[in-house]
Computed example of a mutant assay.
Amino acid sequence: MNSGTAAKDQHESGAAAAAARPETLSVEDLSVHYGGVCAVRSISFTVEPGQSVGIIGANGAGKTSTLKALMGLVPRSGGRVRFGETDLAKVRARDVVRHGIGYVPEGRHVFPGLTVEKNLMLGAYARSWRDPATRRTLEEVYELFPVLGEMHGRLAGALSGGQQQMLAVGRALMAKPRLLLLDEPSMGLSPKLVEDILAVLVRLREEGLSLLLVEQNAKLTFEATSDCVVMENGEVAMTGTSRELREDVRVRRIYLGL
Rank of each mutant, 00 (worst) to 15 (best):
E244D: 15
M1S: 15
P105D: 11
V81P: 04
K192A: 15
L73H: 08
D227N: 14
G107C: 13
G35F: 11
E140C: 02
R171K: 13
V40G: 02
G60V: 06
A69M: 08
L30A: 04
G84D: 00
E247P: 00
H11N: 14
V147L: 12
T64M: 02
I56R: 03
T239W: 03
E150Q: 13
K192T: 13
P75T: 09
L193D: 07
T115R: 14
A19G: 09
E140Y: 04
N59Q: 02
C38Q: 15
S160T: 14
P185G: 09
E12R: 15
G107Y: 08
T239S: 12
A16W: 03
K118I: 09
N2M: 05
L204I: 05
L144A: 13
N233H: 14
V96P: 00
T137Q: 15
L198W: 02
E223G: 05
Y103M: 04
S77W: 01
D29R: 14
E223N: 10
L122E: 12
G14H: 07
G153T: 11
F45S: 04
D9T: 10
A7T: 06
Y142H: 15
G35Y: 05
N2Q: 02
S3F: 02
A15C: 07
F83R: 01
E207S: 13
L25H: 00
A175M: 06
C228V: 15
L148I: 12
K118G: 03
R154D: 03
V230P: 12
Q51T: 06
T134S: 01
P185V: 09
L173I: 10
L148W: 07
T86G: 03
Y125D: 07
V169W: 04
M71Q: 10
Y125R: 11
G149T: 06
T64D: 02
Q51G: 08
V236P: 00
F111D: 08
P185W: 05
L155W: 07
M71S: 04
E140K: 08
V53H: 00
T5H: 11
P75V: 10
V169E: 03
G153Y: 05
V202T: 15
A175R: 02
L73P: 11
L173F: 06
L212E: 09
I254W: 09
L198R: 14
C38R: 13
I43L: 13
L198V: 06
L173Y: 08
A18P: 10
Q10M: 14
E215K: 05
D131T: 06
E232L: 13
L179V: 07
A58N: 03
L114I: 11
R108Q: 14
T137D: 15
G84V: 01
S186G: 02
S128W: 07
E28C: 09
A168T: 04
L73S: 07
G162V: 13
F222C: 02
G149H: 10
V40R: 01
F145G: 01
L114T: 10
S77L: 05
